[in-house]
Amino acid sequence: MATNASTAAPIPRPNKRSRYSENLLAATAVTPPILLLVLFIGIPAVALLATAFTDYSPGIEPEFIGWKNFTTLFNSSVFYSILLRNIGYVIGVVSLQLLVALGIALILDNELPYRRIWMALLIAPFAISPVVGVVIWKNLLDPSYGLVNYVVSSLGLPTVPWMSTPLTSMIAVVIVAVWRGFPFIAIILFAALRGIPVEVKEAAKIDGATSFQIFWHVKLPFIMPALSIMALFETIFAVREFDTIQTMTGGGPGTSTSLLSHYLYRTAFGTFRFGMGAAVGWVMLALTMLMAALIIWRAYRDMFPKNKA
């Protein structure tokens, strides 16, 4: 019996040949996505960067102009107002989406009657084609015949001149963006909430924790990874928001609802200044990466604490 250790079969060490074939397999598996990334993201990104240093406009011979597109951009008050609006839009829309989605996920987490029907209804905005959804909202919010103002006036309240001032136009855009984005988050958060072990919640209850304390100290830490991932995705989606703006307001009145992606479109395809458009594209990329990095840092610093030993 004492010979167990000596008689146990040694773990076979992979020989050189099998290690080579393993590496080959790994390389074969990884190469296609890397090639696709280089082809569809890397090369266009480099080409875009190169374009940003030219005055390229279709039909006119491009010339290298150095940093001029970037300096023009950062000397433009219109660009600054759009940049600030975009940052405000991202913060506002993502916060609202997360709050609404979290509220709905918490409601669904209770033993609601007909929960499956509620969930099916919840997914509807997500299932509708984005542009169709925006067009429906555009009609619902129409100041003269829209259903929203009809309901508001039926209740004896003053009607809202939707899409008639910079403020009401922006509010309309935010409403639609939140409506489009929250169902997906709610479904993910609901799944995360269902994944919390019942014993943990029961233990908190036995210890006398209130509902809020259970939410704050038990549920929230458990769903935080899902919440962070959703915040990250929605931030990226909000930075590049285009279809709602283009379909609902066209960026107007003036440029009061224009965001970076719409400004990029208008610059590149509306006025054919592709070089300037490329510069806006790089600013957008930098902004997205910065915001994403902030979220990732905030979300994961607690999950992977430094080894203090």
């Binding site: 406009s57 039909g59 006119i60 219109v78 008639s164 001032t165 910079p166 107007g252 009145p253 003036g254 440029t255 009061s256 208008r266 509306g270 006025t271 054919f272 200044r273």
Partner: peptide, 23 residues
């Protein structure tokens, strides 16, 4: 003009700003 669309865009922004935004 080769920059006609740029001119058109500038006019649109200015007029919308006057008419709607009260500039």
């Amino acid at each position: 003009n080769p920059r006609l669309s740029e001119a058109s865009d500038a006019i649109a922004v200015a007029v919308q700003n006057i008419v709607v935004n009260g500039a």
